[in-house]
C-alpha cells in the first residue's frame, strides 16, 4: 500500500545516493517539485533516466547531483539547448557527465519491458543509425521464427521512479490523465516510487473504466503537492508555462545566473511554493 507522506520524508526515505532515478513526464506532468526536493537534499552520484530530459534534468545536472544521464532527446522544447547539460558534456562543469543515449522507440520499449519483468526489449529499430556504434547497450537479436534481425536494448529497471499525477485517493490509488507518456511503465518497472499529485480526494472517480490508474499497492509514496508540475502542466488544471521555458534559456546559459536562480528558487524554498501555480480547483 502506498503511504501518504510529506515530500521531504518521501525523498529522504526513498531516494538514495547513487540510485538510478527515472523522473518521467512527456512535456505534461513533469515532477518538478519532487525533483527540486532531490536537489535540496543534495543527492549525489545519481543515474537519471528520462526520454525527454528538459529543464528539471538541466537543474539536477547543473547542481552536481548526477553522474550519468540515460536519455533519447535532451533539450528545451521549442526553445533550444539545455545549457547545463551542454556545459557538463562539453566542459565537464560542474563535473563530467556520462551519457547513455537511445532513440525514443528504444526507451519506450525498454520501459515497457521493465514493467513487464523482461530482461530486454526487442523492436525494429536503429537501422542505419550511428547510435548503435557509440552505445554498447544497443545490440541485435534474430527472430527465431522469421530470421529477421531486430534491435535489442536492456529493459529499464530504475531504483526509484518519480512522477506527478492528476489526483489520488486516501488509499493512495493514483489517476493519470491527458498525455500519459511512460509514467505508468516507469512506476511498474521501478523498485520504489514516489507520486506527487495535485490533490488527494475521498473518491478517485476515474472518468472511464479504462482510465490510467496505478493501484495503491504498486506505489511506495503519495504526496499532495498542488502545482507540483510547474512550469510543466496538468491537463484541466493549469497550462504549460511556455514563457518560463523561454525565460530559462538566458538563466541557464550563465553559470552564476544559474546558481543564483537555484539558490533563490529551489534551495531556499519548499514544495509549498508550487501552490501558487495550481490554479482554480475543479
Amino acid at each position: 500500500m502506498a503511504r501518504i507522506m510529506t515530500l521531504k520524508e518521501a525523498v529522504a526515505e526513498l531516494v538514495r545516493d547513487g540510485d538510478k532515478v527515472a523522473m518521467e513526464g512527456f512535456t505534461h506532468l513533469i515532477p518538478y517539485a519532487a525533483g527540486h526536493e532531490v536537489i535540496r537534499q543534495q543527492r549525489k552520484g545519481l543515474t537519471i533516466i528520462r526520454m525527454t530530459p528538459d529543464i528539471l534534468y538541466d537543474q539536477l545536472i547543473g547542481m552536481g547531483c548526477v553522474d550519468k544521464l540515460v536519455f533519447s532527446w535532451g533539450g528545451n522544447p521549442g526553445v533550444g539547448s539545455l545549457h547545463r547539460l551542454r556545459d557538463a558534456v562539453e566542459k565537464q562543469w560542474p563535473k563530467p557527465l556520462a551519457l547513455e543515449e537511445h532513440s525514443h522507440a528504444a526507451m519506450a520499449n525498454a520501459y515497457e519491458a521493465g514493467a513487464a519483468g523482461l530482461p530486454c526489449a526487442i523492436f525494429r529499430g536503429y537501422r542505419g543509425a550511428d547510435l548503435a556504434k557509440v552505445n554498447e547497450n544497443i545490440k541485435s537479436v534474430t527472430c527465431p521464427f522469421t530470421g529477421e534481425k531486430l534491435a535489442a536494448v536492456p529493459s529499464i529497471r530504475p531504483d526509484v521512479a518519480i512522477i506527478h499525477a492528476n489526483r489520488a485517493d486516501r488509499q493512495g490509488n493514483v489517476l493519470i490523465e491527458g498525455i500519459v507518456g511512460v509514467q505508468k511503465e516507469a512506476v511498474l518497472a521501478a523498485e520504489r516510487s514516489i507520486v506527487t499529485v495535485e490533490e488527494i480526494v475521498d473518491d478517485l472517480a476515474p472518468p472511464s473504466p479504462n482510465s490510467c490508474v496505478l493501484p495503491s499497492w504498486t506505489v511506495s509514496a503519495v504526496v499532495e503537492v498542488p502545482g507540483g508540475a510547474h512550469p510543466s502542466y496538468v491537463q484541466g488544471r493549469y497550462p504549460r508555462d511556455n514563457a518560463f521555458y523561454k525565460a530559462w534559456d538566458p538563466i541557464a546559459r550563465d553559470r552564476d545566473a544559474f546558481k543564483a536562480w537555484m539558490q533563490e528558487n529551489v534551495m531556499e524554498k519548499g514544495p509549498e511554493a508550487f501552490a501558487a501555480y495550481a490554479g482554480e480547483r475543479a
Partner: peptide
Amino acid sequence: VRLPGGGGAPE
C-alpha cells in the same frame, strides 16, 4: 557542440 539528440528520428 552537443545537440539535443535524435528523439524519435532513427525509427
